[in-house]
Design a protein around this nucleic acid. Structure first.
Lengths: 134, 134
DNA sequence: GTAGTTGCAAACTTTTTGCTACCCA
DNA sequence: TGGGTAGCAAAAAGTTTGCAACTAC
């Protein structure tokens, strides 16, 4: 029943710090590119392994944009997201958490519910402007 | 501004009927396997193309489970989902739609919001039982 | 007739994994 | 010192695409 002892390697720390320091919900690829600036020999496999470990621990949150690409959120607190269907950009929302819905969901489905997410889809301001040109 | 004229080929019809006739939110692969029973020469590419077209038209809904795998829902009406993190099973919920949240999301983010989804995550009854054996 | 669609195969993207050497606790 | 971890490369998994033949309208 014990979980594995974890180490804070410099790779893991850099990835975590990167995510803590941005609110821009990057993809694994972007994280890989950024970490390489500090650690040119880091491999993409390491990035993925650490992202998986960190999200298992609850230190970060793994999201998915509309296109089945993972994005990662360095803010582990409860909050919801607004996702741009044009460019994949994700913006945090400050809508108060609706935890009580989980009870309804559990009652209806019979699942042991432990979390939920709410995602809004739309076109961000940046894409709205350029959409006019099409 | 016109959208392309669509045809209802037998491939497309079989896929749509399959999805209308189940509430079990299948993956593309499952749909491929099923359609092959009626149309042994159908290709996976055709399945994907039709699923994309049908979801663009709003006839079906494209979902994503926790693992970045697409699942498809033949019920185009507003509803929310409960997803099993063990087996990927998805169950429909009858919680009343919370459309008013979209206004809050739009106001906070500046996006032109046009839809939202709410997903609950938990362990389904089937997996709860087998989890005891571990 | 013709534009949309199919089957097939190859390509592409994202993510995972096996392995040996390495290094944090 | 030992077990978790890194780097590297290969492979897996899911999805998209180019093309010639076909078909629904």
């Amino acid at each position: 029943m014990e979980s594995k002892a974890r180490r804070m390697t410099k790779q893991r720390k850099i990835i975590l710090d990167l995510l803590r320091g941005t609110d821009h919900h990057p993809t694994a690829d972007w994280i890989y590119a950024q970490t390489r600036k500090q650690l040119p020999k880091i491999s993409l496999g390491t990035v993925y392994r650490n992202l998986n470990i960190l999200s298992q621990e609850g230190a970060i949150i793994q999201l998915t944009d509309g296109k089945n690409v993972s994005r990662f959120d360095g803010n582990p607190e409860d909050h919801y997201h607004c996702i741009c269907t044009e460019c994949g950009r994700i913006t945090d929302l400050k809508i108060p958490p609706l935890g009580f819905l989980e009870e309804q969901a559990a009652a209806q489905s019979g699942y042991a519910v432990f979390m939920h997410r709410i995602d809004f889809f739309g076109i961000c301001q940046h894409c709205c402007v350029s959409a006019g040109d099409k």
